[in-house]
C-alpha cells in the first residue's frame, strides 16, 4: 500500500504444498522476502522493516 513496488502475498500452504516444500515451511507464519530473506513466526514491525531493507540493499547492489 505504501509503495507500488511492494507486493505482499498471503499463501495458504495446504493448497500450495509445493511452495511449502520449496521454502521449507515447517511452522506458520513464515515470511519470505525476495526469495531469500526469511522471518520465522510473527515479529515486531521494526524487525520486518529491517529484514525488508536488508533484502532491498542486496537487490539494489545486484
Amino acid at each position: 500500500m505504501e509503495n507500488s513496488l511492494i507486493t505482499a502475498d498471503a499463501v495458504e500452504i495446504s493448497e500450495f504444498p509445493h511452495l511449502a516444500q520449496k521454502y521449507s515451511v515447517r511452522g506458520v507464519p513464515k515470511t519470505v522476502i525476495n526469495e531469500e530473506y526469511v522471518i520465522e513466526g510473527s515479529g515486531p514491525e521494526s524487525m520486518l522493516l529491517s529484514t525488508i531493507l536488508e533484502a532491498v540493499e542486496k537487490t539494489g547492489s545486484g
Partner: peptide
C-alpha cells in the same frame, strides 16, 4: 504502520515481494 516505517518503505526503489505462508 508507523510514520517511520512508512517513510522507509516509500523510499524503496526496487521490487520487494513478501510471501507470508499461513494455514487456515
Amino acid at each position: 504502520l508507523s510514520d517511520e516505517t512508512r517513510k522507509a518503505l516509500q523510499d524503496i526503489k526496487v521490487p520487494v515481494h513478501l510471501q507470508v505462508f499461513t494455514t487456515p
